[in-house]
Amino acid sequence: MCDIQDISPAGSTEPDVAHNFSPLVIIYKDGRAERLVGNEIVPTSVDPESNVLSKDVVYSQEENLSSRLFLPNNINPNKKLPLLIYYHGGGFCVETPFSPTYHSYVNMLVAESQTIAISVDYRRTPEHPIPILYDDSWTAIKWAAFHVNGDGPEEWLNSHADFNRVFFAGDSAGANIAHHMAMRYSEEKLFGVNLVGNILMNPFFWGEESIGNEVNEQVMTREQIKKIWHLASPTTSGCDDPLINPIMDPKLLNLGGTKVLVIVAEKDFLRDRGWLYYEALKNNGWGGRVEIMEVKEEGHVFHLSNPACENAVAMLRKIVSFIHEE
């Protein structure tokens, strides 16, 4: 997710534009969505720098949905790797696992963490409103679970995935999805799948009432976030819907997994929501361990646009440590 601008309909020169959420997406009155970012596709490869392998696999034949798998090369064939299931961001409406941004980032994450990763492609809003993308994301987890006994359709998972060490992760809207997958896991536990932890980077959470520094944000920014949410979930009850405001979920303390890492950025307009989520888990009786990292002087999902900068490297180190610490 990034800064957005709704300049329509009054500010639009095109009469058929319903909403202009530049630089993410333009929605036309006939329902078409013109996505402005995240449309380029990077082919799978053996990455020359990290030596990570990647390939695409279909996880839902019915909906023709794929995921991109990432596997470190030259690994010990007798040693299983933690399984990382990753959900990309993009305001629920743009980007894919196959774009240069996410291919590059998950590739680097896998290289550094020595995990096997499933980067999930889910159907996007507004053509496929919430909860469709949550259902797709859960279908991908169930597909992964077919490999628990080593006889699933994908050999990489059969041979290399340690289903006793499973992590969900995502950034922005993808972090929102990762949270809800951990909630669903607590209700629909999958045989042989042990969710250890959840990694939420700049999570896209919100609420009706402003908190913390949100009161200093421009009214336009707050309204933009609301509009993106209502675009994604047209039947929502509002910004206190537990799907966007997990603090309002009476089942929050049932969250699956044994530990959570929340990463916020000091200059991110969603910063205080990440802190509120952390405090709710820490102080209200959730049984696991929750950690938070605040990255100074950075904005929303800065690590995707500048992954080599000092703060992004420190953030990556923290994620790797979180995955491997006992």
Rank of each mutant, 00 (worst) to 15 (best):
Q5T: 15
S8G: 08
S8P: 06
A10E: 13
G11Q: 10
V17Q: 06
F21V: 08
V25G: 05
I26Q: 12
I27A: 09
I27P: 01
G31S: 14
A33C: 10
N39Y: 01
V42S: 13
V46Y: 07
L53N: 09
D56S: 10
V57I: 12
Y59L: 02
S60V: 06
Q61R: 12
Q61M: 07
E62W: 09
N64H: 02
L65F: 10
L69C: 09
L71S: 05
P72E: 04
N74R: 15
N76W: 06
K79I: 11
K79R: 13
K80Y: 02
Y86Q: 09
H88Q: 12
G91C: 12
E95T: 05
T101S: 07
Y102Q: 00
Y102C: 01
Y105M: 07
Y105G: 04
V106N: 02
L109T: 09
L109Y: 00
I118H: 01
S119M: 11
V120E: 03
V120Q: 02
Y122Q: 07
P129Y: 13
I130R: 03
I132C: 14
D136M: 08
K142V: 06
A144S: 14
A144E: 01
F146T: 04
V148Q: 00
N149H: 14
G150D: 12
D151F: 01
G152E: 11
S159V: 01
D162R: 02
F163M: 00
R165F: 04
F167P: 15
S172E: 05
S172L: 04
S172N: 07
G174T: 04
N176L: 04
M183G: 04
M183W: 03
E187K: 15
E188Q: 13
K189P: 06
F191Y: 04
N202E: 09
P203D: 01
F205L: 12
E208F: 04
S210P: 01
S210V: 12
V219W: 04
K227G: 03
T236N: 04
T236Q: 07
S237M: 09
G238M: 10
L243P: 00
P246N: 09
L252Y: 03
L255W: 06
K259T: 07
V262Y: 11
A265V: 04
K267C: 07
L270S: 02
L276W: 02
L276N: 10
L281W: 10
G285Y: 03
G285H: 05
G285F: 06
W286A: 12
G287H: 14
G288A: 11
V290A: 15
K296D: 08
H300F: 11
F302K: 03
L304A: 08
S305D: 11
N306W: 05
N306T: 07
C309S: 12
N311H: 11
N311R: 14
V313R: 14
V313Q: 13
R317Q: 13
V320K: 13
H324N: 15
E325D: 14
